[in-house]
Simulated assay, not measured.
Amino acid sequence: MTTTPFAEHPARLTRELIHTLVSEKDDGPLAEHVAFIAEKLAAAAADPAKIVLDDPHPQRSHIAHDITPASSARNPIAPPMDIRWNGDESRCSLTLPLQYQGPPGRVHGGIVALMLDHVLGNAANSGGVPRAFTRYLNVLYDAATPVGEPLVITGRVTKEEGRKRFLEGEVTCHGEVRVKAEGLWIQAKDS
């Protein structure tokens, strides 16, 4: 399943709606923005072939036909992750908007774990190796991961033993490590 400009467009509008729902406190402006988004959706649905995106989400993922809640351009709850292979590690730079907040001003810990699992999974499955899946992921939250600040998430394979791939990674903000993770990915038996 390839993400077309039409499929990505309503997902982006839905993300915009989600952001408005969690950030707008007054019903009047909220209603105006909902109507504005509804008009954009109706216009797109009237002629899907006319949708053009200036900056389409890259189709890079270790998951074929990505519809995951971690990185899919088609899935409106997915954080805006663009994971790239950089030397010997997977790397993602992003800034998370308010809808990913848990405690005030902080990214929800489950979202942080989701992003780490996805970036480490990308590292475990890069380079044409047989597919491996998460066996466990340990996450150590050293400091708050702020909403609205630039984050860098990295992951790398540290050791391989047969079908096992051991990984580690971290989330940094302004060069400071906020969260560390280590885990084990296991190659599927039928690979």
Rank of each mutant, 00 (worst) to 15 (best):
H19L: 15
G87K: 08
D88R: 13
Y100P: 00
G183D: 04
K25E: 08
Y141V: 14
T172H: 03
H57I: 09
G28I: 12
Q59G: 04
E16D: 13
A31H: 03
G175E: 01
V107R: 11
L116N: 06
A132K: 06
R131P: 01
S191F: 02
L21F: 12
N125V: 01
C92M: 13
K50Q: 11
L184N: 03
A78Y: 01
G169E: 14
V152P: 02
T68R: 00
D47Q: 13
G127C: 03
F133P: 08
S93R: 09
T95P: 07
P146E: 07
G127I: 13
E8T: 01
G109E: 14
E176Y: 00
E182Y: 11
T172N: 10
I186W: 11
I63T: 01
Q187R: 11
I111C: 15
I37Q: 07
E32Y: 04
H108M: 14
T154Y: 05
T145R: 02
S23W: 00
I153T: 10
L41V: 09
I77G: 00
H57S: 12
C92I: 06
E32K: 00
I83K: 11
A143V: 09
E16I: 13
E8F: 01
P130S: 05
N122Y: 12
K164G: 15
E32N: 09
V139Y: 14
L30Y: 02
G102N: 01
K189D: 10
V34W: 04
R84Y: 03
A70S: 09
V22F: 03
S71Y: 05
S23P: 02
D66I: 14
H174T: 13
R91Q: 13
I153W: 04
I77Y: 02
A181Q: 00
